[in-house]
Amino acid sequence: MAATSEPHGSAFSAAELEFLAEDETIEIVPNLRMDPLNFISGDFGPFRPQIATQVPLWLAVALKKRGKCTIRAPDWMSVDAFPIENLTQVLEAERDSEKFQPLPFHYVEISRLLFDHAREDIPDIYMVRSLIEDIKDVRFHKIGTGLEIISKERTYALRLKNLSAMEANIVRPFVTKALETFYKLSSSEMIQESDHISNRQPQAANRGPRRQLKDR
């Protein structure tokens, strides 16, 4: 947690995003007996051997490191389980469509934490890992091409549908600066325009019709 981000470059550091992701709940199967834990962040347990229970990821990882539980990989991390959306399908859909597929908000961080600390608990780990890598790559590429749209059309608001925490954080500095610049340029353009036009219109009305809400 040592690395804290500068305010306003990108708002959060990777470590801070991981910190947030560690609060997501995950199912574990403990192999010890332990009373319920009454934390500031909530109550968890009781823990009984072989009885599955929901805990935050950080707790799961802490127990896992000490060999006190196995972690159940979340449903979305399966290669081809019927009937739930699985990674193979997600990757295909991600490649076929311009839209982003719904994935957990912290999918990058969660999968990374599980790969690092619970590799033997994830079925088909190599497959899962490469699928998530591929999905990540396809999405990042899409983000890149998607950003070109900002420059082609006037954009005053951007909808980032299904973008994950890490992805949003990475594009944040660029997107916010770009939108800001367009916003400023369009206002100064208007000042020039209004200098020439005798019948001057209020700024907002002038800017209005051109604003596009991009569904990205």
């Binding site: 005053y156 980032l160 907002a204 800017r207 604003r211 809400l213």
Partner: peptide
Amino acid sequence: QLDDGGEEPVNIEADDLYALP
């Protein structure tokens, strides 16, 4: 409504990310 009026309003859906001023 984003600001100043005039512009078409943004439809804010639950759980979606938006970049807004």
